[in-house]
Design a protein around this nucleic acid. Structure first.
Length: 322
DNA sequence: GCGACAG
DNA sequence: ATCTTGTCGC
């Protein structure tokens, strides 16, 4: 049975989410912190990761969260983790992270425990970083919670802080010459929030790159270009392709849309995961977390019975804060 | 009623 | 995000 979508969260919840974004935003590092980021050839960089969440057609709750790790500069997949999850929050522009990030943090945490040697040195995230309503998009959110360098890559311009996809903007896009060319996206305050990047020659639509965490915008744009075999950076593209395939296979084999979100450990198969080791992440400490769950459930008006309504169950906040 | 709206 | 196979073009 395809579960129903959750409506828009009450203002009280959005208010708390804003508070959490403001709190975590103070922890964002928008400069290069690793040696390879400053190297002209990125020497020292060996693993780049990508994350994505794909959805099941008529079901706004079931989704597949994926994390892939590719070798650099070859860009060959060396690790893949796809898992079915039950989304808790609805999509609200400006709060994408509250819908997707918990599952991505879990995936990173599991990799950290089971195959630490495959931990990516940077993560490409489908969505914006500081190019956001409050300067704290999903790429920043995931970066702070995992302590990994993150790059925000959006396929469409988020029109915030004065940025507009108007005639002038389109003209700037038209003037981009070859792959790697870019132009700054300046917010109303005069700050450069991100860059529009022509990811490769013959690409009409640019990518909107912004800082997520622990990396400068310049390095982020340069590396993004270096990871594009096609318009979408290979790490994110592979995460997207594989999560969609996973859904197709799951639906095909099971026949009916009866998915078993986040349970059958047997159904997930990290490509390069040895045997041994038990399950259960045994999540570590949680310093900064908040009331996301409690508030959300408390203020949710309808859905009295533990019925097929949805919502319910939020993941334990896995923070990588030592 | 009209425009926005990351995924 | 998702609905969708083949088809035309470089």
């Amino acid at each position: 049975m395809a579960r129903k979508a959750a409506g828009r969260p009450p203002e009280e919840t959005l208010s708390l989410w804003k508070r959490e974004q403001a709190l975590l935003k103070t922890l964002v590092v928008d400069r290069d912190t690793e040696a390879w980021q400053r190297d002209p050839a990125f020497s020292g960089l060996q693993r780049v990761g990508g994350v994505d969440v794909s959805f099941v057609k008529g079901d706004s709750v079931s989704a597949c969260a994926s994390l892939v790790v590719l070798s650099y500069p070859e860009l060959e997949v060396m690790y893949e983790d796809c898992r079915m999850v039950s989304l808790t929050a609805p999509y609200v522009s400006g709060f994408l992270a509250f819908r997707e990030v918990p599952f991505l943090v879990d995936a990173v945490q599991q990799l950290r425990e089971k195959e630490p040697r495959l931990m990516p040195q940077v993560l490409f995230v489908d969505g914006n970083g500081v190019l956001h309503h409050r300067g704290f998009g999903v790429a920043c959110h995931l970066g702070v919670l995992t302590d990994l360098p993150c790059i925000g890559v959006a396929k469409k311009l988020l029109q915030v802080d004065g940025l507009e996809n108007n005639a002038l903007h389109k003209e700037k896009i038209r003037l981009l010459q070859g792959g790697g060319d870019s132009f700054p996206l300046m917010g109303g305050s005069g700050t450069v929030l991100g860059m529009a990047l022509k990811s490769h020659d013959h690409s009409t639509k640019p990518l909107y790159v912004s800082v997520g965490h622990k990396m400068s915008l310049e390095a982020a744009v340069r590396l993004t270009h270096g990871c594009c075999k096609f318009r979408i950076p290979e790490p994110v593209r592979q995460a997207d392709i594989r999560s969609r395939d996973y859904i197709r296979r799951t639906l095909g084999v099971q026949g009916a849309p009866a998915l078993r979100p986040e349970r059958s450990k047997k159904a997930q198969r990290p490509k390069a995961c040895p045997q041994g080791a038990s399950e259960e992440p045994a999540v570590s400490c949680c310093v900064l977390n908040c009331s996301v769950k409690s508030t959300w459930q408390r203020t949710e008006p309808t859905c009295p019975s533990p019925c097929e309504g949805a919502i319910l169950e939020v993941h334990p906040p896995a923070l990588a804060v030592i």
